[in-house]
Design a protein around this nucleic acid. Sequence first.
DNA 1: CCCGCCCGAACTGTATACAGTTTGATCTTG
DNA 2: CAAGATCAAACTGTATACAGTTCGGGCGGG
Lengths: 245, 245
Amino acid sequence: MTGSDRGAAAGLSRMGDRADAIGEAIHRAISEQRLLPGTKLPEDQLGAIYGASRTLVRAALQALARDKIVVLARNKGAAVASPSVAEAQAVFEARRLIEAATVARAAAAATPTTLDGLEALVDEGRTALAHHDRGRAIRLSGEFHLGISRLAGQPVLHAFLRDLVSRSSLVIALYGHTVHSECGDGDHRALIATLRARDAPAAVAEMMRHLADIERDLDFKRPNHRPLALADVLGPPSSLAVTAA
Amino acid sequence: MTGSDRGAAAGLSRMGDRADAIGEAIHRAISEQRLLPGTKLPEDQLGAIYGASRTLVRAALQALARDKIVVLARNKGAAVASPSVAEAQAVFEARRLIEAATVARAAAAATPTTLDGLEALVDEGRTALAHHDRGRAIRLSGEFHLGISRLAGQPVLHAFLRDLVSRSSLVIALYGHTVHSECGDGDHRALIATLRARDAPAAVAEMMRHLADIERDLDFKRPNHRPLALADVLGPPSSLAVTAA
DNA sequence: CCCGCCCGAACTGTATACAGTTTGATCTTG
DNA sequence: CAAGATCAAACTGTATACAGTTCGGGCGGG
């Protein structure tokens, strides 16, 4: 189940860099909202989970901190980031700017084949929801947006959006009101339709509407201060866990 | 001379994190083109220069690698990045997108005081040029753009632009044709004029023209493959160097 | 009962040790 | 003389050791 290695995120986990693999695993756990904002991430425990020394865990955490999805407090260790309201709004504003550009280019560059790939992502998300795997659905929703930006053929903007999507995951975890925002696949299908029509202006409009919808579902008054999940929710994503065998 | 600690980059070097300080020093050396693309960066030597162990140097290099201004090859170490032609074009395209947004907002948000700060930056650049300190002038030119984006009050876009400006420095070092691109302060003064007039459309137009000018000065046919500078060009930026005393 | 002090457990910051890899130079051989 | 094998130096990958810091709990005094 968890092992369906989509090509999406596989690009980064360049085998050989164990620290990257650990960072990827934690990143995925955050993207799937198994690790919630505020959760403390002690180096020792992570090392035990992934069967690595603190050296590698530390490198992974520092990389995640650079992405702003983990915060590092001196002498106090790492924790999953809790974006402020201002930061949340800035993230979505940046998304509007960047995704307007990427979706427009995607409309020009898309082929039936690549669009089928996007559609498959949406289908997969629907399946995940049917299986009550909400975390996976959330992550796939993000990968849909990244898929579009990949079509745009602008690696720099794609990398930026990657950051923004990850951070959006935290924002939704903190301020998400209903489950509607990340789960309804109607918006995504409508977006694909505009891309199939190669109608760039319509695609941009649809994307802006979609992002506004997500943002509208946020409730900045009542942040979800859930009690913090334990760290042993990790491990499943890859076969990295210390196999005692 | 080098000690004029402008508020510009000081925000990052949060004292206490020695690795950040080292990264900052290397980053500055690259921004000032004292370290040219392709230069090898051995951990031991850097450690000796900054009086730190490989642990800290390594952390710094990994951070710089995330910013794409250093490349890390497994078992082969770090080197100053040499952006490809495609990457160079992508960087400038991203700059056009982001700086159009930031300069427009800056035009709305600028006050006479903040604009004086920008002007001071331009003046400082001119002074640096007069003192034949080309590296410093180049870095200040980048900080001018960052100053505008700071006015925009969008921290996310500002952070992105920070990346792009650093990478632009490498692009110019590799493909820069004349010295014109980064040094003529006329464009920057014209930009400030549009900001003073609070004329957002004119500011955007001026910025686009300016970026196009810089890009036009690049010669992608003849990359400057200078023979690689030695690493002991480092040290001056801060008092980090191992004071043998 | 409450407040402040002290101490120990848990954790991070950094250096260092050791193992594995790359690379280029030297030596050998056809 | 050229081409390939061999080996040593240089460097990176990772673990571990130790020092310093934070934080919460127990204890004594008011």
